[in-house]
Simulated scan of single mutants.
Amino acid sequence: MKLFAFLYHTLTGGFLAYRVLMLLINAATFPRLRPQSAAPGVRVSLLVPARDEEANLRRNLPGLLAQGAAEVLVLDDGSRDGTAETARQLGARVLTGEPLPPGWVGKTWACQQLAQAASGDVLIFTDADVTWHPGALGAVLAQLRHSGADLLSVWPRQRNVTPGERLLTPLAELPLIALFPLPLLRFPVPAASAANGQVMAFRRASYWHLGGHAAVRGEVLEDVRFAHRLRRAGGNLSLALGQECISVRMYRSYPDSVQGFGKNLLAVHGGHRALLALSFAFVLASYTVPWLGPVPGARRLRLASVAERLVTNLIAGRRQPADLAEGLLGPLTPLLMLPVYRRALRRQVTWKGREYRQ
Rank of each mutant, 00 (worst) to 15 (best):
G164D: 14
N160Y: 05
Q143K: 04
L144F: 01
D150E: 11
W155R: 07
G135T: 08
R159A: 08
A149E: 08
W132C: 03
L152M: 13
V154D: 05
P163R: 15
S147I: 07
V140A: 07
T131V: 04
V161R: 14
T131P: 00
R157Y: 05
W132T: 03
Q143M: 07
V140P: 02
A136F: 04
V161A: 11
A142C: 08
H146I: 09
W155K: 08
L151V: 09
V161Q: 12
P163Y: 15
P156Q: 09
L151I: 07
Q158T: 13
W132G: 00
D150V: 04
L141D: 04
H133T: 00
R166K: 14
E165R: 13
A139I: 09
S147G: 13
R145S: 06
R145Y: 00
V154S: 06
Q158I: 12
W155D: 10
Q158P: 11
S153H: 08
P134K: 10
A136E: 02
T131L: 04
L167G: 08
L151W: 07
R145M: 01
E165F: 13
V140N: 01
S147W: 08
P156R: 00
H146M: 09
W132I: 01
L167A: 13
Q158E: 15
G138K: 07
S147V: 09
Q143A: 13
E165I: 14
G148H: 05
V140G: 01
S147E: 12
S147K: 10
R145D: 02
R166H: 15
L152F: 10
A149V: 08
V161L: 12
W155F: 14
W155M: 13
A149D: 01
R157G: 10
G164A: 13
L141M: 12
L151R: 02
A139K: 01
T162Q: 12
L137W: 01
Q143F: 00
G135E: 01
R157T: 13
R159M: 10
